[in-house]
């Protein structure tokens, strides 16, 4: 087995303005399942194809946005080794006790120069997908809404993304898969992968720290993306753009907003990343095509609408 270290984005903790409205949206519309709720009122959700007991944590607050993103390591030994490397790199670690999130082991939290909080963890209770690991059926019956398969990645906006990206590539073993260069030749958009997905995390250079651009969920087919868009119109969900295609990652996508204004994405069809590939570079004058391949121009919302 060659797949160790950081395995995947394991959870995103999202702030919402109204919990009841948000739970309805994330369960009935997005198709996540509510698996737990804690004494702080936080709600835990998972997508059907995930085995761990949650991937999204909702917290009611007076401003929306993202509290932190957690990445799961293959083993505790991998986590400890990576935490050591972070400390050697000069990054402070805040240890979050086992059980602070229900059914999740100890978490090592750190801040990036972009102002975001990230966590590494290695243990989370698996409750499965209801299909079992022996002679399983391909999908469970009774799924709701867009029927997303998994929480896939986040795109975050903040300052110092070159330094921030280096933490993931030089310390945590991620690969840089795609980047955008400004006319001065500086990276101002970066996509990184800890797996063989085209992205497990992305950053855009932005003056305000700790901003969320979107939380993304995976679908398998273009038809499913179209069906998701139909559901958005059926239920008056705010659509940002799409269905369309990204140049970056090749993903087929639609951007839309949760009831608190946090942007979500459902997408399908990015490529397979291998670590012997060169990163893809997009130049500033082609940024429109990089982001929205058909429109070939950026819209103001992509540039400014964040929580």
């Amino acid at each position: 087995m060659s797949f160790t270290g950081v395995m995947r984005p394991g959870h995103a903790a999202i702030r919402v303005l109204d919990m009841d409205e948000s739970v309805t949206y994330y369960t009935e519309r997005m198709g996540l399942m509510k698996t737990d709720e804690d004494d702080q009122g936080r709600v835990y959700l998972k997508a059907w194809d995930e085995l761990d007991c949650f991937s999204i944590v909702l917290r009611e607050a007076d401003s929306p946005g993202i509290d932190y993103t957690g990445y799961k390591t293959f083993s505790r030994a991998d986590m400890d080794e990576l935490v050591g490397k972070l400390e050697d790199y000069g990054i402070d670690i805040e240890w979050i006790a086992e059980g602070e999130l229900n059914n999740c082991g100890e978490r090592a939290r750190f801040q990036t120069p972009s102002g975001h909080s990230f966590e590494l963890y290695s243990e989370k209770k698996q409750i499965g997908d209801g299909l079992g690991r022996t002679n399983p059926n391909p999908w469970p019956e009774g799924l709701k809404g867009m029927q997303v398969y998994r929480f896939d990645h986040v795109l975050l906006y903040g300052p110092n993304i070159i330094e921030t990206t280096k933490i993931f590539t030089d310390v945590l073993g991620f690969d840089l898969t795609e980047r955008v260069l400004t006319p001065e030749g500086e990276m101002n958009v970066t996509f990184v992968s800890c797996s063989n997905k085209a992205h497990d995390l992305a950053f855009v250079e932005y003056p305000e720290p700790n901003k969320l651009h979107h939380v993304s969920f995976m679908l398998m087919t273009w038809e499913e993306v179209l069906r998701a868009a139909d559901l958005m119109s059926m239920h008056d969900i705010s659509i940002d753009i799409g269905p369309t295609r990204h140049g970056i990652t090749r993903g087929r996508t639609i951007y839309f907003f949760d009831p608190s204004g946090n942007r979500n994405e459902v997408f399908c069809g990015d490529y397979t990343w291998y670590p012997d590939r060169e990163p893809i570079t997009w130049t500033a004058e082609e940024l429109g095509r990089a982001i929205f391949y058909h429109d070939r121009r950026l819209n103001e919302n992509f540039l400014t609408v964040v929580t």
């Binding site: 906006y157 932005y206 305000e208």
Partner: peptide
């Protein structure tokens, strides 16, 4: 609204 918001560093809406 919008003109109080920040844009992506190195980009402005006219150039986009």
């Amino acid at each position: 609204g919008r003109w109080q918001k920040h844009f992506i560093t190195g980009m402005n809406p006219e150039a986009a």
